[in-house]
Design a protein around this nucleic acid. Structure first.
Length: 401
RNA sequence: GGGAGCGUGACGGAGUAGUCAAACGUACCUGACUGUAAAUCAGGCGGCCGAUGGCCUACGUAGGUGCAAAUCCUACCGCUCCCA
């Protein structure tokens, strides 16, 4: 009688463990891993939320880490909750910045939120999660409420945060409102009577404030999950050339290209773990042999990412295109046309928007960064013919029409 | 309320009357190399001029002194620290 039941529990437990280990910081599980596993198995349908501040119009690779975590929870039978921080974005979160972030206007916020949902659905299917805007409860708080909230934490607690310490040391300003930010975020938890919260490791402090508040106000033990961040072991950030940030809205070509260009070799494996849904076993099997050939390994990653947010077909195409343009230095399939017949090269590259100013165009010409039909051109009076391909740097092309 | 100090380009940070479009570092861009990258090396990194020189705009904001100001003076704005 106990046999099958126990076995079933074990299967679930290993699945939970894998979920907890794959994307989370080992020290980023509160109250602790054992307790969390228990709660996950209790049969309760846990509501776990991720707060996203609409600070930009795109959801990028970094966001996908907690989102994929939520997706896994959903698959385990729990309930993801997404909170759009439309209210908090007006204040400005100090996290990770050593300078206060400037508050956004309501209009900016509205614009940013526009593209959010469609991108979200690429990870969490429509209907799989609860969606809230934190203005719906934060707006209702009056000054007295805020004071009462604030009475639950101390300045000493607040300035514990590294980044406040750093600013104190550097004698840089810290706004009082920045102390309030964690409280607001914490209040999100209270207002929703949430069971758990996930966020980047840099959000741990804020998430724990919410945990405290739920303890004090609701006598509830909120779970906190802090994910690993997208940084290489050497602490190098991944951001390099062109768009640098990979956004879910990017076209296949861009996702592929940006992956190839902006991800350091030593980060490939952790991005597979953090940002894809490839089984952990598969990743481990491949990371060994593949590290001998990071080029192929990275192309696999790029392929995978395109496949996730578009499809395998597109991924295939993007891969071929990349080979063609970057490895073999051939021309891309599709090149935008520009009506520049009879114009001098310098005018073509500036007025087509390939470079920002004439001065810059000149610099590039002088430094050999401009090619016509694969030949470097340094003379800025050169006039390409109709049908010629003008190239600026390694990746900008235009066809003269 | 009193006192001291600070405000420079994407960021950090020099410069404190002329040689400053502003050292140096990071970030970024181009080129070479390569396996996409990284590292390394070379060049660039306000704008405009058919231009090895010239012009315009810039060193918190507004005025002033002076042949000449990022540099001096005044006011204002912002920030930091100390005392109360």
């Amino acid at each position: 009688m106990f046999g099958p039941k126990l076995q079933k529990l074990n299967i679930v437990e290993s699945a939970i463990k894998e979920v907890l280990e794959r994307r989370l910081e080992p020290e980023g599980i509160f109250p602790n891993k054992e307790e969390v596993i228990k709660r996950f198995q209790s049969g309760e349908r846990l509501r776990v939320y991720l707060g996203i501040d609409p600070t930009g119009p795109e959801i990028h690779l970094g966001h996908t880490i907690p989102l994929l975590f939520l997706k896994q929870l959903w698959e385990l039978g729990h309930m993801p909750v997404i909170v759009i921080g439309d209210f908090t974005a007006r204040i400005g979160d100090p996290s990770g910045k050593d300078n206060a972030r400037k508050p956004l206007s309501e209009e900016e916020i509205k614009n940013n939120m526009g593209t959010y949902l469609t991108q979200l659905y690429k990870i969490l299917p429509k209907g799989s999660f609860e969606l809230n805007y934190n203005s719906s409860w934060l707006e209702k708080l009056n000054f007295a409420d805020v004071i009462k909230l604030a009475s639950h934490s101390t300045v000493q607690q607040m300035i514990q945060r590294d980044m406040f310490q750093e600013r104190l040391k550097a004698e840089r300003p810290i706004g009082v409102h920045e102390f309030l930010y964690p409280l607001m975020q914490g209040y999100d938890s209270v207002a929703m009577e949430i069971d758990g919260e996930v966020g980047g490791n840099d959000q741990t402090f804020n998430m724990l404030v919410g945990r405290d508040l739920e303890h004090k106000l609701l006598n509830k033990d909120k779970l906190v999950f802090a994910t690993r961040l997208l940084v290489s072991s050497s602490g190098k950030k991944m951001s390099k050339s062109e768009g640098s940030l990979i956004a879910l809205n990017d076209n296949p070509q861009d996702i592929f290209g940006k992956t190839m260009a902006s991800i350091p070799d030593e980060m490939i494996k952790s991005i597979f773990e953090l940002c894809t849904e490839k089984p952990i076993g598969w990743i481990n099997e491949n990371s060994g042999p593949m590290s001998q050939n990071p080029y192929e390994w990275k192309k696999k990653l790029a392929f995978e990412l395109v496949a996730m947010y578009h499809n395998e077909n597109e991924a295939q195409k993007a891969a071929q295109e990349f080979e063609k343009v970057f490895s073999k230095k051939e021309l891309p399939e599709e090149i935008q046309e520009f009506a520049g017949n009879g114009m001098e090269i310098i005018d073509i590259i500036t007025s087509s928007g390939m470079v920002e100013s004439r001065s810059e165009a000149k610099r590039l010409l002088e430094q050999g960064g401009v090619k016509v039909n694969q030949e470097t051109v340094k003379d800025w009076m050169f006039k390409p013919n109709q049908g010629d391909i003008v190239q600026v740097g390694p990746r900008k092309f235009v066809k003269i029409k």
